[in-house]
Design a protein around this nucleic acid. Structure first.
Lengths: 222, 222
DNA sequence: TTCCAAAATTGAGTCAACTCAGTTTCCATG
DNA sequence: CATGGAAACTGAGTTGACTCAATTTTGGAA
């Protein structure tokens, strides 16, 4: 069943993805012709369309690798012990933004977002939406954990708060990639200020001593 | 200086915009060929490009008309008297979403958003960003007014809260237009729940009597 | 080893957005 | 009125993403 054929397939796929990632970063997404990717990957233009439905799918495949890294490092962050709600959320945001430009340029992000908006029902539109859902769930998971640990008041709707925070992060990320001038520091400090008005009011000032944490008894106001 | 030439220009512009709006709604943005718009408007394809840089700009011009209406009716809403913070914000959101599909289909919104993301520095990308800024300012303006009226606690950072609310609205609007199945009611109730966790905590339970309102003395907690 | 059917690749061809050199329309001036 | 030239229009041509019929490659059965 498998053998040389599968190997060649995987090889070609890797070559195409690598060539595309390199060219997109150097010449930009718009500035990169499919034919150039084909040349660089030593295949014909038609072959690229055997692996990816269109130019955009190629980009979104690269984005997916990137976001999966962000998700993994976000999960690690959540697993740590946290001293304060605001610091924990700020760091999750920093993790999100600092990873974002490692493999992808702002221009690439703009195009990836545009594609996922334009074609939400295409295979990769669905993948992209799934990545967003995972990120939103991660924010909710952090708040849930902090609620159990006693850093968030027990009567807080953590799903609502998590979605509010995530949607704000996501919108600010959109603004960030739309503006070449905006730095990671700029956007993180803006976000921190925006979140403060919420987080300050749902936080509990003093965490429970560690031996009581994790029992989900963290109710406070009647 | 002016005369027949100017008149013809204005006529043509109107015809192009009208033809485009009609065709975009009936055949969809993707399904509409520039040549068909040119035919319907009785001009050549080249002429369309004298008025609009590209197909997307044509769409964004239509969106801009729509958003200006939303802004006008939002301003009217803010000017009214309000009984509660949550109701006031819920109605502003309803105004936003209910207007949104009067002239534009979800597909048109998806493309308009995609274009503004892809080309933030093009003339109409700038227009679109300006519209967003106005909408965000409107939310902040509402909170400011309610703070002066005594429905919002005096120590609240209304800019932060307004931006948080607007960014949530905008992200939920994106989700709304991405999903053909989601109704206005669906999205409004989701938003209302998300906002509750914030608004509940920054609201003051009893408004000041009317003769004291507007003095911006609405401080509460030390 | 030989040969076949399925899988995969190929690149010339198609389609639609956008361009630009040539043409027409308008208006200010004598 | 004529006329020169600026402003606007025109549509055949260009460009680049994407397709598909023909060709090549592969795995394994005889």
């Amino acid at each position: 069943m498998t053998g040389l054929r599968e190997k060649h397939k995987a090889d070609r796929d890797r070559r195409i993805l690598k060539a595309a990632a390199k060219l997109f970063r150097s010449a930009g997404y718009e500035g990169t012709r499919i034919e150039r990717i084909a040349d660089a990957a030593d295949v014909s233009t038609g072959t690229i369309y055997n692996y990816y439905q269109n130019k955009g799918d190629l980009l979104v495949a690269i984005v997916a690798m990137e976001v999966n890294e962000v998700l993994a490092s976000g999960a690690q962050h959540i697993a740590k012990r946290h001293r304060s709600l605001r610091a924990a959320v700020d760091r999750l945001a920093a993790n999100y933004f600092e990873h974002s430009l490692v493999y992808l340029s702002k221009e690439m992000w703009r195009h990836a977002m545009a594609i996922s908006t334009r074609q939400p029902d295409s295979p990769f539109g669905i993948v992209y939406a799934g990545l967003d859902t995972h990120l939103a769930e991660q924010v909710v998971a952090l708040l849930d954990k902090l609620q159990k640990t006693g850093l968030v008041a027990g009567d807080v709707d953590t799903t609502a708060a998590g979605e509010l925070v995530f949607n704000n992060l996501n919108m600010m990320f959109t603004n960030f990639v739309k503006s070449e001038a905006m730095t990671v520091e700029d956007v993180l400090s803006a976000i921190s200020r925006q979140h403060r008005v919420l987080l300050q009011r749902i936080a509990l000032p003093h965490p429970l001593p560690r031996h009581l944490a994790g029992r989900s008894l963290a109710r406070t106001l009647p």
